[in-house]
Design a protein around this nucleic acid. Structure first.
Lengths: 328, 328
DNA sequence: TTGTACGCGTTATCAA
DNA sequence: TTGATAACGCGTACAA
């Protein structure tokens, strides 16, 4: 192991040390027919120098490679890092080239181009939002591509069942019999799955219950400001946020105003178990989602299915203290 | 842009379309001497087909490349993702190959080997802990390597000034005049910079103040259990944790026990501003740390300094509600 | 079973 | 200024 790192040993070196042709070594390496005798000879040398093939030469020759570009909107999120962990979990021989776009769709476009110029063997795109430019770039790519996050009809994808999530939360809301509900949503142009799908069932459950919907932002301090404004005008006994992060912002506003509504969030995050009270939240298993993504990617890459693949991940409602009778 | 993606155009294609030799195209691409006439000819073709060079062929030829392996203990942490952002910020032409080791030192070793077999041009290692095996692997590598996190004398490194941090926090603790202090530390064998350095100054400030030190863990539920045990035996009026995460665990225990000590943490995390009360914490700027890391890496790679490089990052104490007079 | 020879896309050397 | 040619490390027809 140590030696191998100092001066890259090539297939030629191995060949000459073993007194065989390099093609023999190549066959040895790739499971071709080699006699027992030479096999043992080469074994020793390869072992001794801990030979590893030059991946550049391999990729160049084979016109394909096992590097997969993964475009991710952010890294400091349990959802994203769990998905990456899921990818790692199933992966044996691929290398992931992770590009963080910092939630900027221009960077997504740049990332797609960069990955192409790097000759990756495929792309996995985690995203909340696809622009037409991005769709265009993806469509014109010859690479196997799988996306996650939005239900885009023309792309192989893994999506979260946000519609069902909203329905389940809606049902649960009814059992709480709230008097006045505050909905903290996000712009559906920024994230359709969240802003639209996720809230369909919730709104339906509120047809006969007084409620107010506010469009806020994923950023904590904006959520804090927006919710504070709403909650100081009138008091709510239930707050439903599009994400856990948003709910945490609302919690702080509520505490500042000495209000104690119930809270429901979405997502699997640090927050649900670090805030007091612990947060009732609809959670998806992003680790499994990552595994599903990888499986789908491999399928697309290796079998080139003719029909567009679509896989849906379900989640579950985890009830914690924040919707218990008294939480102050 | 679109065309380029469909069928990789090579330097040969360009050459034959322009009726020149491929070596001429190569010179054109790399700033060699080309006549005005042929330059224009090639310009058009390259533009039209949006030619980009095959990076594998380039790396193979040049025996070096611009891929830098980044080994990171975890991704779902502001500290880590801010450092990565810092790397991105300064980088122009390098590609980062990020490997998450999930805080497992065996995976670090595997990552180092994998990166070598991938022929990366260098390694940046973010770590809390170096084993002898890892030191050995790094030492025997011919690659430029920079580490962050531990003050390892034999490696080029960027470290956080944990000693000074402890002193500053120690000074601040004195101004709070606590009666009984609980220190929640971690095993210095697991993270020396944190477990040892960070607590030097703190302990010094407590020579005349009753205090108890407990060795706990980075994991939230363990911290919760350990701190609950300690706090149910006797009451503390100040809790100092090795990290914000640890303090959050202690906070939950305290609330469960209806105790309201002051809290001080370390680190720059989601937690400090999402828990109530907001957490007083000693914070480092990990974005700047990432930039410093990249600068140091480039320096090491391009200039191969003979002496071991060591750079220290300072932080500052941010005072929030958790050490205010009354926090309940 | 083994070896020779060629090509993958690029850069570099050397003549022309 | 140009172009033919070799070389990077590997895999693979094809021939022996």
């Amino acid at each position: 192991m140590i030696n191998s790192m100092n001066k890259k040993v090539t297939i030629n070196d191995i060949a000459s040390m073993a007194n065989v042709a390099k093609s023999t070594v190549s066959r040895y390496l790739n499971g071709g027919s080699v006699s027992e005798h030479t096999r043992l000879k080469i074994d020793r040398i390869v072992e001794k120098y801990n030979y590893t093939p030059n991946t550049f030469a391999q990729s160049l020759k084979q016109q394909t490679n096992h590097t997969v570009g993964v475009i991710v909107p952010r890294l400091d999120s349990i959802a994203q890092s769990d998905m990456l962990r899921g990818l790692d979990e199933l992966n044996k021989e691929d290398t992931f080239l992770i590009i963080n776009t910092y939630q900027d769709s221009n960077r997504v476009l740049a990332a797609i181009e960069k990955l192409h110029s790097q000759n990756v063997g495929g792309i996995i795109l985690l995203t909340a939002n696809l622009t037409d430019e991005i769709r265009q770039a993806l469509t014109s790519s010859p690479l196997p591509i799988v996306i996650q996050g939005q239900d885009e009809p023309n792309f192989h994808r893994v999506i979260m069942n946000d519609i069902e999530a909203g329905l389940i939360v809606g049902q649960y809301i009814k059992t709480l019999s709230p008097q006045r509900v505050l909905l903290l949503n996000v712009d559906s142009n920024i994230d359709y799955a969240v802003g639209h799908d996720r809230f369909l069932g919730i709104k339906e459950s509120l047809t006969h219950i007084p409620h107010q919907e506010i469009i806020t932002d994923f950023k904590l301090h904006l959520t804090k400001k927006d919710s504070y404004k709403a909650m100081s005008k009138q008091q709510f006994d239930l707050v439903v946020g599009a994400t856990d992060r948003i709910v945490v912002g609302a919690m702080q506003s509520a505490f500042a105003l000495k209000q104690h509504p119930k809270f429901i969030g979405f997502g699997q995050s640090f927050f649900s178990e670090t805030v007091s009270p612990n947060l009732t939240s609809f959670e998806f298993d992003f680790f499994e989602t990552g595994k599903a993504l990888y499986r789908l990617f491999v399928k697309v890459r290796d079998h080139k299915p003719k029909t567009v693949q679509r896989q849906v991940i379900n989640g579950q409602l985890i009830i914690r203290e924040s919707t218990k009778k008294s939480n102050h």
